[in-house]
Design a protein around this nucleic acid. Structure first.
Lengths: 230, 230
DNA sequence: CTTCGTCAAGAGCAGTGCTCTCGGTTTTGA
DNA sequence: TCAAAACCGAGAGCACTGCTCTTGACGAAG
């Protein structure tokens, strides 16, 4: 059975079409995705959807997984598109890519980083794709340290915390001074906060030049981390 | 009519009780608050709730408003509890108060800072209470500049951005160098990101000492802002 | 060619927000 | 004081949701 049967092929096509329609509904109606509405849009009856997704949460999970990977692709591609030695340029590119993707897919971003759906618990399949953006940022730090172009922070972390962050560095398989990794995490936290504030509408009115604001804020974190210009 | 009528008093009591029960449901069931469920809990029929709140969104708005003010109270009280000259102590106290409140009221925090409910638009009554925490943080900067204890950042902001932030400073009625206010906003953004990451469960597993991590991260932002110790 | 697995459809259940009507009570004003 | 007005809770009902189960039809495999 190297060649998938006809039935398997149309089944795969149906799954893709359901996800596409659901993604469209997500973009317009927000997070409250209605299975019945998706079924209506496909000229089907709601119960037919259950042949392809055992529950609404499973459909949501599939969309979440795709969204995580789309965001990860965007961030990694942006990072890879800059000269590897240009640490600061890579940082800005990765941050901008995350923001651009979020602005283009606000509902999916809200699905990933908004308040968790009450009954919903993200399965373990999602944790690896979810870590791709922060891993990209940490990779910039790793390259910078390896090239000797980042001066680690002067003082080390106080002890209960130092072990935690060191363990996290081991878990990420990067050899970074804990104090530096902590600053990188501050940058990642800041990036998430920036995008969320902009997307969830708490900053728009007073700041017309949002691109410049974003770049400046991420630049501040690059300063904090110690990323050298060019 | 100085003394409110009996009817008005029981009405006010009913409104309070409905909000209390709704808050309880919010804490257990998450954001999907069911009017019928709170009505059941009160031994009433669902339509009776509509005598007190014209819609579910209005009930949510009332809860949101109370939550904003509770958070604002907590942050302002923490800030006021520290010697006014101890800028860094005030910063840490305000940040910790926000985190403590959020950890104690996760569902309400999610209501305030999570993904916006699709059909829901926050009325204008909520913007003033929503600004209380960031205003408290900015107040620390204002006091520091007034006392000459904060050195403003060396370089100024590039121009399209400088005007925006200067306008924001005027709107907040604080006389701060734009570059400094921008760093303060970075701190506020970071604070929100920190709390959200911790609350929405993206950081817990790998960092057992969360209090220390939080203090360190907010300390990093205090460094960036230039808050002097003691 | 027949059997088996898969499929869409429909009915139905429990739950939701919300509207409307119907009696009963309280407050108000003449 | 007493009728009119305002208010209140209960109930029925509408349109919607996620989800389950059964039924009948169709295509693929033996």
């Amino acid at each position: 059975m190297l060649a998938p049967s006809l039935r398997a092929r149309v089944r795969a096509g149906m799954i893709e079409e359901i996800k596409a329609v659901a993604r469209r509904h997500l973009a317009t109606d927000g997070a409250n995705l209605s299975l019945r509405a998706v079924a209506r849009d496909m000229g089907m009856v709601s119960s037919a959807i259950y042949r392809y997704f055992p529950s609404r949460d499973d459909l949501l999970t599939a969309l979440i997984l795709e969204a995580y990977n789309a965001l990860g692709d965007a961030v990694e591609a942006a990072d890879a598109g800059v000269d590897q030695a240009d640490l600061r340029g890579r940082w800005h590119a990765a941050c901008r890519a995350a923001r651009t993707w979020a602005l283009a897919h606000p509902a999916e971003y809200a699905l990933l980083y908004g308040s968790p759906v009450p009954g919903y618990a993200a399965p373990d399949d999602t944790v690896a794709p979810a870590q791709r953006p922060p891993e990209t940022l940490v990779g910039i730090l790793r390259d910078g340290v390896a090239a000797g172009r980042i001066d680690p922070p002067g003082e080390d972390l106080p002890e209960p915390l130092r072990s935690d962050v060191a363990e996290l560095a081991a878990l990420l398989a990067v050899d970074l001074p804990p104090a530096l990794l902590a600053r990188g995490m501050a940058g990642w936290t800041q990036l998430f906060g920036l995008i969320s504030f902009e997307l969830f509408g708490r900053i728009n009115r007073t700041l017309p030049h949002r691109d410049e604001y974003f770049d400046h804020q991420t630049g501040l974190m690059a300063d904090l981390i110690g990323l050298p210009a060019t």
